[in-house]
Design a protein around this nucleic acid. Structure first.
Lengths: 158, 158
DNA sequence: GCAAACCGGTTGCACTAGAAACCGATTCGA
DNA sequence: TCGAATCGGTTTCTAGTGCAACCGGTTTGC
Protein backbone atom coordinates (compact mmCIF):
# COMPACT_ATOMS: atom_id res chain seq x y z
CA UNK A 1 0.00 0.00 0.00
CA UNK A 2 2.69 2.47 0.99
CA UNK A 3 5.81 3.16 -1.03
CA UNK A 4 7.86 4.53 1.86
CA UNK A 5 11.22 4.89 0.28
CA UNK A 6 11.97 7.65 2.76
CA UNK A 7 14.21 7.36 5.76
CA UNK A 8 11.39 8.83 7.78
CA UNK A 9 9.90 5.35 7.70
CA UNK A 10 12.93 4.06 9.60
CA UNK A 11 13.03 6.83 12.16
CA UNK A 12 12.06 5.14 15.36
CA UNK A 13 10.29 8.04 17.09
CA UNK A 14 8.14 8.35 13.98
CA UNK A 15 7.32 4.65 13.98
CA UNK A 16 6.41 4.81 17.64
CA UNK A 17 4.14 7.75 16.96
CA UNK A 18 2.36 6.03 14.09
CA UNK A 19 1.80 2.81 15.99
CA UNK A 20 0.75 4.43 19.24
CA UNK A 21 -1.66 6.77 17.50
CA UNK A 22 -3.22 3.88 15.65
CA UNK A 23 -3.73 1.99 18.90
CA UNK A 24 -5.00 5.04 20.78
CA UNK A 25 -7.43 6.04 18.04
CA UNK A 26 -8.87 2.58 17.97
CA UNK A 27 -9.37 2.44 21.71
CA UNK A 28 -10.70 5.97 21.91
CA UNK A 29 -13.24 5.16 19.22
CA UNK A 30 -14.38 2.07 21.04
CA UNK A 31 -14.86 3.85 24.36
CA UNK A 32 -16.59 6.77 22.83
CA UNK A 33 -18.97 4.54 20.94
CA UNK A 34 -19.83 2.25 23.84
CA UNK A 35 -19.66 4.48 26.89
CA UNK A 36 -19.32 8.05 25.67
CA UNK A 37 -16.07 8.29 27.59
CA UNK A 38 -12.86 9.88 26.41
CA UNK A 39 -9.47 8.45 27.29
CA UNK A 40 -8.72 10.91 30.13
CA UNK A 41 -12.07 10.09 31.70
CA UNK A 42 -11.51 6.40 31.28
CA UNK A 43 -8.08 6.61 32.87
CA UNK A 44 -9.47 8.35 35.92
CA UNK A 45 -12.15 5.72 36.30
CA UNK A 46 -9.63 2.92 35.91
CA UNK A 47 -7.45 4.31 38.66
CA UNK A 48 -10.33 5.07 40.99
CA UNK A 49 -11.80 1.63 40.52
CA UNK A 50 -8.53 -0.06 41.18
CA UNK A 51 -6.86 2.10 43.83
CA UNK A 52 -9.93 3.55 45.54
CA UNK A 53 -10.85 7.13 46.50
CA UNK A 54 -8.16 9.76 46.22
CA UNK A 55 -7.50 13.42 45.48
CA UNK A 56 -6.98 14.98 42.09
CA UNK A 57 -3.37 15.48 43.00
CA UNK A 58 -2.75 11.78 43.37
CA UNK A 59 -4.68 11.10 40.17
CA UNK A 60 -2.24 13.35 38.37
CA UNK A 61 0.60 11.14 39.51
CA UNK A 62 -1.18 7.90 38.73
CA UNK A 63 -2.36 8.87 35.25
CA UNK A 64 0.57 11.08 34.22
CA UNK A 65 -1.94 13.56 32.91
CA UNK A 66 -1.96 17.33 33.34
CA UNK A 67 -3.79 18.55 36.43
CA UNK A 68 -6.16 20.50 34.19
CA UNK A 69 -6.97 17.35 32.25
CA UNK A 70 -7.63 15.48 35.49
CA UNK A 71 -9.80 18.28 36.77
CA UNK A 72 -11.88 18.38 33.59
CA UNK A 73 -12.25 14.60 33.50
CA UNK A 74 -13.44 14.60 37.11
CA UNK A 75 -15.93 17.32 36.41
CA UNK A 76 -17.40 15.43 33.48
CA UNK A 77 -17.60 12.22 35.48
CA UNK A 78 -19.20 14.05 38.38
CA UNK A 79 -21.80 15.61 36.09
CA UNK A 80 -22.65 12.16 34.85
CA UNK A 81 -22.95 10.83 38.37
CA UNK A 82 -20.12 8.36 37.95
CA UNK A 83 -17.92 9.88 40.65
CA UNK A 84 -18.62 11.94 43.75
CA UNK A 85 -16.52 14.41 45.70
CA UNK A 86 -16.52 14.46 49.46
CA UNK A 87 -14.73 17.12 51.46
CA UNK A 88 -11.30 16.26 52.78
CA UNK A 89 -11.28 16.74 56.54
CA UNK A 90 -7.49 16.80 56.62
CA UNK A 91 -7.08 19.49 53.99
CA UNK A 92 -9.72 22.01 53.10
CA UNK A 93 -8.22 22.64 49.68
CA UNK A 94 -8.93 19.24 48.21
CA UNK A 95 -11.66 16.64 48.09
CA UNK A 96 -11.72 12.89 48.02
CA UNK A 97 -13.01 11.57 44.73
CA UNK A 98 -14.62 8.18 44.52
CA UNK A 99 -16.76 6.08 42.23
CA UNK A 100 -20.48 6.14 42.89
CA UNK A 101 -22.56 2.98 42.63
CA UNK A 102 -23.25 3.87 39.02
CA UNK A 103 -19.56 4.50 38.50
CA UNK A 104 -18.65 1.13 39.93
CA UNK A 105 -21.15 -0.52 37.63
CA UNK A 106 -19.62 1.18 34.59
CA UNK A 107 -16.14 0.34 35.83
CA UNK A 108 -17.21 -3.28 36.04
CA UNK A 109 -18.17 -3.20 32.38
CA UNK A 110 -15.29 -1.12 31.20
CA UNK A 111 -12.36 -3.04 32.56
CA UNK A 112 -13.19 -6.37 30.92
CA UNK A 113 -13.66 -4.54 27.64
CA UNK A 114 -10.30 -2.86 28.06
CA UNK A 115 -8.55 -6.12 28.78
CA UNK A 116 -10.30 -7.78 25.90
CA UNK A 117 -9.23 -5.06 23.51
CA UNK A 118 -5.70 -5.31 24.78
CA UNK A 119 -5.81 -9.05 24.22
CA UNK A 120 -7.16 -8.69 20.69
CA UNK A 121 -4.71 -5.95 19.76
CA UNK A 122 -1.67 -7.86 20.88
CA UNK A 123 -2.88 -11.36 20.13
CA UNK A 124 -0.14 -11.90 17.58
CA UNK A 125 2.57 -11.31 20.18
CA UNK A 126 3.78 -14.17 22.33
CA UNK A 127 3.91 -13.82 26.10
CA UNK A 128 7.66 -13.44 25.93
CA UNK A 129 7.42 -10.77 23.24
CA UNK A 130 4.88 -8.85 25.28
CA UNK A 131 7.12 -8.96 28.29
CA UNK A 132 10.11 -7.77 26.29
CA UNK A 133 8.07 -5.04 24.66
CA UNK A 134 6.92 -3.65 27.99
CA UNK A 135 10.46 -3.81 29.33
CA UNK A 136 11.78 -1.91 26.33
CA UNK A 137 9.12 0.79 26.73
CA UNK A 138 10.06 1.18 30.37
CA UNK A 139 13.73 1.46 29.54
CA UNK A 140 13.08 4.06 26.88
CA UNK A 141 10.94 6.12 29.23
CA UNK A 142 13.64 5.99 31.87
CA UNK A 143 16.21 7.03 29.31
CA UNK A 144 14.17 10.07 28.28
CA UNK A 145 13.84 11.14 31.90
CA UNK A 146 17.59 10.80 32.25
CA UNK A 147 18.29 12.91 29.18
CA UNK A 148 15.75 15.53 30.20
CA UNK A 149 17.50 15.91 33.49
CA UNK A 150 20.79 16.39 31.69
CA UNK A 151 19.52 18.63 28.92
CA UNK A 152 17.41 20.92 31.06
CA UNK A 153 19.74 21.79 33.92
CA UNK A 154 18.05 25.02 34.91
CA UNK A 155 14.40 24.10 34.81
CA UNK A 156 12.12 21.68 36.54
CA UNK A 157 11.80 18.22 35.06
CA UNK A 158 8.07 18.73 34.81
CA UNK B 1 8.96 8.14 42.64
CA UNK B 2 5.68 6.66 41.48
CA UNK B 3 3.56 4.34 43.55
CA UNK B 4 1.65 2.85 40.63
CA UNK B 5 -0.29 0.13 42.31
CA UNK B 6 -2.91 0.54 39.64
CA UNK B 7 -3.49 -1.81 36.76
CA UNK B 8 -3.42 1.20 34.48
CA UNK B 9 0.36 1.00 34.79
CA UNK B 10 0.24 -2.43 33.16
CA UNK B 11 -2.15 -1.51 30.39
CA UNK B 12 -0.05 -1.66 27.29
CA UNK B 13 -1.75 1.05 25.23
CA UNK B 14 -1.22 3.38 28.18
CA UNK B 15 2.45 2.47 28.45
CA UNK B 16 2.91 3.04 24.74
CA UNK B 17 1.26 6.42 25.04
CA UNK B 18 3.44 7.50 27.95
CA UNK B 19 6.66 6.43 26.31
CA UNK B 20 5.85 7.80 22.88
CA UNK B 21 4.74 11.13 24.29
CA UNK B 22 7.94 11.40 26.29
CA UNK B 23 10.02 10.76 23.19
CA UNK B 24 7.96 13.07 21.01
CA UNK B 25 8.01 15.91 23.51
CA UNK B 26 11.74 15.67 23.82
CA UNK B 27 12.29 15.74 20.08
CA UNK B 28 9.76 18.49 19.51
CA UNK B 29 11.46 20.61 22.15
CA UNK B 30 14.83 20.11 20.55
CA UNK B 31 13.65 21.05 17.08
CA UNK B 32 11.74 24.03 18.25
CA UNK B 33 14.69 25.30 20.22
CA UNK B 34 17.27 24.82 17.51
CA UNK B 35 15.39 25.40 14.28
CA UNK B 36 12.00 26.78 15.20
CA UNK B 37 10.43 23.83 13.41
CA UNK B 38 7.48 21.78 14.58
CA UNK B 39 7.29 18.05 14.00
CA UNK B 40 4.93 18.25 11.00
CA UNK B 41 7.27 20.73 9.35
CA UNK B 42 10.27 18.62 10.13
CA UNK B 43 8.61 15.53 8.70
CA UNK B 44 7.88 17.28 5.44
CA UNK B 45 11.47 18.46 5.17
CA UNK B 46 12.78 14.99 5.92
CA UNK B 47 10.70 13.44 3.16
CA UNK B 48 11.48 16.16 0.64
CA UNK B 49 15.18 15.94 1.36
CA UNK B 50 15.20 12.22 1.01
CA UNK B 51 12.70 11.48 -1.73
CA UNK B 52 12.91 14.72 -3.72
CA UNK B 53 10.22 17.08 -5.05
CA UNK B 54 6.64 15.90 -4.90
CA UNK B 55 3.05 17.03 -4.48
CA UNK B 56 1.23 17.58 -1.20
CA UNK B 57 -0.83 14.53 -1.98
CA UNK B 58 2.17 12.25 -1.99
CA UNK B 59 3.49 13.91 1.16
CA UNK B 60 0.28 12.91 2.88
CA UNK B 61 1.00 9.29 2.08
CA UNK B 62 4.65 9.49 3.07
CA UNK B 63 4.13 11.27 6.39
CA UNK B 64 0.77 9.75 7.37
CA UNK B 65 -0.36 13.22 8.32
CA UNK B 66 -3.66 14.88 7.55
CA UNK B 67 -3.71 16.78 4.28
CA UNK B 68 -4.48 19.95 6.19
CA UNK B 69 -1.42 19.43 8.38
CA UNK B 70 0.71 18.90 5.30
CA UNK B 71 -0.70 21.98 3.64
CA UNK B 72 -0.02 24.18 6.65
CA UNK B 73 3.46 22.80 7.12
CA UNK B 74 4.24 23.51 3.48
CA UNK B 75 2.92 27.03 3.80
CA UNK B 76 5.09 27.75 6.82
CA UNK B 77 8.14 26.29 5.12
CA UNK B 78 7.41 28.30 2.00
CA UNK B 79 7.08 31.51 4.00
CA UNK B 80 10.49 30.83 5.50
CA UNK B 81 11.98 30.20 2.11
CA UNK B 82 12.86 26.60 2.89
CA UNK B 83 10.68 25.10 0.19
CA UNK B 84 9.36 26.39 -3.14
CA UNK B 85 6.33 25.45 -5.20
CA UNK B 86 6.52 25.15 -8.94
CA UNK B 87 3.45 24.63 -11.11
CA UNK B 88 2.72 21.08 -12.16
CA UNK B 89 2.51 20.97 -15.95
CA UNK B 90 0.70 17.65 -15.88
CA UNK B 91 -2.02 18.74 -13.48
CA UNK B 92 -3.04 22.35 -12.95
CA UNK B 93 -4.52 21.60 -9.55
CA UNK B 94 -1.29 20.76 -7.79
CA UNK B 95 2.28 21.99 -7.55
CA UNK B 96 5.61 20.32 -7.13
CA UNK B 97 7.16 21.14 -3.79
CA UNK B 98 10.90 21.06 -3.37
CA UNK B 99 13.60 22.21 -1.00
CA UNK B 100 15.28 25.50 -1.83
CA UNK B 101 19.02 25.96 -1.40
CA UNK B 102 18.33 27.28 2.09
CA UNK B 103 16.04 24.32 2.73
CA UNK B 104 18.70 21.89 1.65
CA UNK B 105 21.17 23.55 3.98
CA UNK B 106 18.78 23.23 6.91
CA UNK B 107 18.02 19.66 5.94
CA UNK B 108 21.73 18.97 5.99
CA UNK B 109 21.89 20.18 9.56
CA UNK B 110 18.66 18.64 10.69
CA UNK B 111 19.12 15.07 9.64
CA UNK B 112 22.36 14.47 11.52
CA UNK B 113 20.76 15.99 14.60
CA UNK B 114 17.76 13.69 14.20
CA UNK B 115 19.93 10.63 13.85
CA UNK B 116 22.05 11.70 16.77
CA UNK B 117 19.01 12.15 18.97
CA UNK B 118 17.73 8.77 17.90
CA UNK B 119 21.08 7.27 18.76
CA UNK B 120 21.16 8.94 22.17
CA UNK B 121 17.57 8.04 22.99
CA UNK B 122 17.99 4.39 22.17
CA UNK B 123 21.61 3.99 23.19
CA UNK B 124 20.71 1.52 25.90
CA UNK B 125 19.14 -0.87 23.39
CA UNK B 126 21.27 -3.37 21.55
CA UNK B 127 21.10 -3.63 17.77
CA UNK B 128 19.08 -6.81 18.09
CA UNK B 129 16.66 -5.21 20.53
CA UNK B 130 16.17 -2.26 18.23
CA UNK B 131 15.43 -4.55 15.35
CA UNK B 132 12.93 -6.54 17.39
CA UNK B 133 11.32 -3.37 18.68
CA UNK B 134 10.76 -2.02 15.18
CA UNK B 135 9.40 -5.35 14.05
CA UNK B 136 6.95 -5.44 16.95
CA UNK B 137 5.75 -1.92 16.19
CA UNK B 138 5.18 -2.89 12.58
CA UNK B 139 3.24 -5.98 13.57
CA UNK B 140 1.06 -4.02 15.97
CA UNK B 141 0.32 -1.39 13.35
CA UNK B 142 -0.64 -4.09 10.88
CA UNK B 143 -2.85 -5.71 13.48
CA UNK B 144 -4.72 -2.47 14.14
CA UNK B 145 -5.34 -2.01 10.43
CA UNK B 146 -6.68 -5.54 10.32
CA UNK B 147 -9.04 -4.97 13.25
CA UNK B 148 -10.20 -1.65 11.89
CA UNK B 149 -11.18 -3.30 8.67
CA UNK B 150 -13.13 -5.90 10.61
CA UNK B 151 -14.69 -3.58 13.17
CA UNK B 152 -15.78 -0.84 10.81
CA UNK B 153 -17.65 -2.77 8.13
CA UNK B 154 -19.91 0.05 7.03
CA UNK B 155 -17.61 3.03 7.04
CA UNK B 156 -14.38 4.07 5.45
CA UNK B 157 -11.21 2.96 7.16
CA UNK B 158 -10.08 6.56 7.37
C1' DG C 1 -19.11 18.95 -26.05
C1' DC C 2 -21.24 19.51 -21.89
C1' DA C 3 -22.94 18.36 -17.32
C1' DA C 4 -21.89 15.63 -13.40
C1' DA C 5 -18.72 13.44 -10.56
C1' DC C 6 -14.20 13.62 -8.83
C1' DC C 7 -9.76 15.25 -7.05
C1' DG C 8 -5.87 18.28 -5.13
C1' DG C 9 -5.62 21.88 -2.38
C1' DT C 10 -7.44 25.63 0.75
C1' DT C 11 -10.18 27.84 4.21
C1' DG C 12 -13.29 27.98 8.21
C1' DC C 13 -14.84 26.00 12.38
C1' DA C 14 -15.32 23.09 16.48
C1' DC C 15 -12.85 20.66 19.73
C1' DT C 16 -8.75 19.27 22.52
C1' DA C 17 -4.79 20.09 25.34
C1' DG C 18 -1.34 22.69 27.72
C1' DA C 19 0.39 27.27 29.94
C1' DA C 20 -0.26 30.70 32.76
C1' DA C 21 -2.91 33.50 35.83
C1' DC C 22 -5.82 33.11 39.79
C1' DC C 23 -8.17 31.78 44.38
C1' DG C 24 -8.78 29.92 48.78
C1' DA C 25 -6.45 27.04 52.21
C1' DT C 26 -2.26 25.60 54.50
C1' DT C 27 2.46 25.70 55.99
C1' DC C 28 6.75 27.92 57.04
C1' DG C 29 9.74 31.35 59.13
C1' DA C 30 10.80 35.38 61.65
C1' DT D 1 1.22 35.43 65.38
C1' DC D 2 1.47 37.50 61.24
C1' DG D 3 3.16 37.79 56.54
C1' DA D 4 5.25 35.23 52.76
C1' DA D 5 5.67 31.29 50.20
C1' DT D 6 3.44 27.09 48.82
C1' DC D 7 -0.06 23.99 47.35
C1' DG D 8 -4.52 21.88 45.50
C1' DG D 9 -7.76 23.11 42.47
C1' DT D 10 -10.18 26.13 39.00
C1' DT D 11 -10.70 29.33 35.27
C1' DT D 12 -9.02 31.65 31.23
C1' DC D 13 -6.35 32.12 27.18
C1' DT D 14 -3.97 30.41 23.35
C1' DA D 15 -1.92 27.10 20.16
C1' DG D 16 -2.64 22.93 17.70
C1' DT D 17 -5.52 19.29 15.20
C1' DG D 18 -9.05 17.17 12.45
C1' DC D 19 -13.41 17.44 10.02
C1' DA D 20 -16.33 19.38 6.77
C1' DA D 21 -17.51 22.58 3.42
C1' DC D 22 -15.58 24.89 -0.42
C1' DC D 23 -12.92 26.30 -4.90
C1' DG D 24 -10.71 25.64 -9.13
C1' DG D 25 -9.22 22.14 -12.34
C1' DT D 26 -9.76 17.46 -14.42
C1' DT D 27 -11.91 13.30 -15.81
C1' DT D 28 -16.03 10.58 -17.02
C1' DG D 29 -20.31 9.45 -19.27
C1' DC D 30 -23.95 10.50 -22.18
Amino acid sequence: MAHDSSRLADFLPYLMSVTTNAVSDMIAGEYRARFGLKIPEWRVMAVLGDAGPQTQRSLVGATRMDKVAVNRACKVLEDRGLVARSPNADDGRSHHIELTAAGKAVHGEIMPLALDMERRLFASLSAAELKDFKALLARITARVAELEGADAPKELTR
